[in-house]
Design a protein around this nucleic acid. Structure first.
Lengths: 163, 163
DNA sequence: CTGCTTCTTGAAAGGAGTTTTCAGTAACGG
DNA sequence: CCGTTACTGAAAACTCCTTTCAAGAAGCAG
């Protein structure tokens, strides 16, 4: 697991200056359960560097992302979350009806990834797996999403194969 | 594979009206290699329905997504792409340096998905797997990304584990 | 086929989130 | 401690997306 010190040291070695805002962002990221977005990082970073601006958050996130300490991730609703690398795989299981998201760790993908790596020549460093389905509640209730434009309850098209 | 006719028929059965803009969007989506974003869909949909506005594209994409014909997906740089469902699994292997993306089909995830499904109670209908790494070219060259703010060539931090 | 209802559309305005610009500030080598 | 210059914060600009609302057309009834 990457520590604040190690990240800062590597940034410094790479020629970047170690500033209060950057310290604050790194600390905020590591503390925030390894899963954040710009606004959350900003809020938390201000605890350590009160005057830090949102712009600097974005710049630092870019920097860390570019330097390989951070990965942009994407959730179904919003966009551009960030997560530190090497925090273990973090997978998302999202209900397509109610949007409920479950996270879980651990997966059996290694053999598969090895095979893909062999076939493509890519060195695979990270993977992001998003599972989409119906949570148990939505399976039972089959209630339509509370959606503004829905004129009437609609049946979701089944995924029965049509040949 | 879902056809234009089938999608439109199911929309109609669900109570939605079949309009020229909706036809155009469905056609555009299916033609665009099953992988698009709002702007691209708009551009292509105008071939079939010249006056169609971007707003309608968004609404129709939402509609199709809501109805289960479409899934929002996310690429590393931009956001909110769309892909028709039932096109077979489509996995993305993205180089974090040069951005080169490879798509490949087929995967061995079924046992894993079954296990997750058991553990969480979710009925998993779709999955999206994004692999991130270095393509063979970038592995060899190790050339720095052409990035504006880079004051000097930087070494990407190795992913050697630090305990 | 004709007319009516209301779902759907397009344009414009609005809004959230992100990036650019630029003068001032502070990190860090000397 | 000083000077260079990378970095920062504020404001403005930009992009992408959503909301609003009057006008238009899909589909049903007759």
């Amino acid at each position: 697991m990457l520590s604040e010190e190690r990240i800062l040291r590597q940034l410094s070695q790479a020629g970047y200056r170690i500033t209060q805002p950057r310290r604050a962002v790194v600390r905020a990221l590591l503390e925030d359960d390894g899963y954040s977005n710009a606004a959350k990082v900003h809020e938390r970073a201000r605890l350590y560097c009160p005057g830090v601006g949102l712009v600097t958050i974005y710049r630092t996130l870019d920097l860390l992302s570019e330097a390989g300490f951070l990965r942009r991730i994407h959730s179904q609703d919003g966009c551009h979350g960030y997560a530190p690398i090497q925090r273990g795989h973090r997978h998302h299981l999202i209900c397509r009806r109610c949007g409920a998201a479950v996270e879980f760790k651990g997966c059996d993908l290694v053999p598969f990834l090895d095979r893909v790596s062999d076939e493509t020549g890519y060195r695979i460093e990270e993977h992001l797996l998003e599972l989409i389905g119906l949570c148990s509640t939505c399976q039972e209730l089959s209630t339509p999403c509370p959606h503004s434009q829905e004129p009437s309850p609609r049946s979701t098209p089944g995924h029965d194969d049509e040949k």
